[in-house]
Amino acid sequence: MSLPTAHKAAAVDLKNEKGVVIKDKPLPVLGDDDILIKVRAVTLNPADYKQIWDWGVLKDGQSTGCDFAGDVAKLSPGAEGKGLKVGDPVAGFVRGGFAEDDNGAFQEYVKKPVENVWKVPTDVVSYEEAAAMGGISLSTVVHGLYHRMKLPPPWAPAKEPIPILIWAGATSVGIYAIKLAKLSGLRVATTASPQNHAMLKELGAEACFDYRDPDAPKKIKEWSQGKIKHGIDTISDGKSTALAAQAYSNDGGQICTMFPTDSGNSRVEVLDLFIFHATEKDKVEYFQQMNEWYKKLPEFASQLKTVMPLYQRKGGLDALPDAIAELRSGKIRAGKISVLF
């Protein structure tokens, strides 16, 4: 396959009101065991704009974007013979241009270590669905449920129902958390606006509570008979974590959060989930655990493919500045924006 020396990419431009512009950039330079992927679809996450505007970790000219799906375009010598070939459909995530200025998901080509992607069964899922499933939302849930809290996974589900609280279940992390917890044999309680309760119950939530109800923690504790010892707070603004912890067993437990925060309860241990470590080879445990999950993911593709509502924006790569601005505006609820290249 003949490859260009440059390609189109969404790059940070802090002088632009949308924060990104489409420009020509050099292709990512492959390492010893990397693959180059021709991007076919991406899905968006709050991290895509927060890394620019809120956290300030991306600077002018750096690439952007996390979740992607596409086809293998090139293998470095060290990637040969490791299960993939040119043309194979794969998906995964990167941390925008943070690790390397020219390597983000929102561009024509992205690079990844050969073992750090999942091979997509395109007869089962679309590229857009694959991007969402291989991206940071579902991966965060997997890391929290099975690696940090050591709960039973879907391939060895719980023999006895274990209650779990998903605080803010209508977020992208919450939606996947409810479905995976249900597949794992857990009893799920969640909070959300009442308008989303029916959808979350269809995913597998046994009980839904209005997050605006000041008595929600008390009601959740009553529902579980004081047995909740595990949970995920998908908001993690401090206040939300403290509210969730009020629903826990008197013995305490563990709650996974998106950022470091405080539960306000010495018995409820906070486990923050920094999923980008799963893309870093020197974070060996994170990296290997993600690679093992990606081997399992095709087995559950048919059950997870329609879990996340996708709101497609047309226009390919050129649609991304507007799509990022739309997500930042807060208009997208209970789903993800997707863009097909």
Rank of each mutant, 00 (worst) to 15 (best):
S2F: 11
A9F: 03
A11H: 09
K18W: 00
G19W: 07
G19D: 10
K38Y: 05
I52G: 04
W55N: 02
L58Y: 01
K59I: 05
D71W: 02
P77T: 07
E80N: 12
E80D: 06
G81R: 04
D88P: 13
G92N: 09
R95N: 11
R95T: 09
G97M: 06
A99E: 09
A105T: 10
K112L: 12
D123H: 13
V125D: 02
G135L: 03
S137C: 09
S139Q: 05
T140Q: 10
H143Y: 11
L145Y: 07
P154R: 10
K159R: 15
P161V: 08
P161Q: 08
P163W: 10
L165F: 06
G174I: 03
I175P: 14
A181Y: 00
L183G: 03
R187K: 14
T191N: 10
S193A: 00
Q195S: 13
Q195G: 01
N196H: 15
N196V: 07
K201T: 09
E202V: 15
L203Y: 12
C208A: 14
K218G: 11
I220L: 04
W223K: 05
S224L: 10
K227L: 11
I228G: 04
I228Y: 13
I235S: 08
K239D: 15
K239E: 14
L243M: 14
D251L: 12
I255P: 06
F259C: 00
G264A: 00
N265F: 07
R267I: 08
V270Q: 05
F274W: 11
I275K: 11
D282I: 10
F287P: 05
W293R: 06
Y294M: 04
P298Q: 04
E299R: 06
L310H: 00
Q312S: 15
A319C: 13
A319T: 03
L320C: 02
A323V: 08
I332S: 04
I337Q: 01
F341E: 03
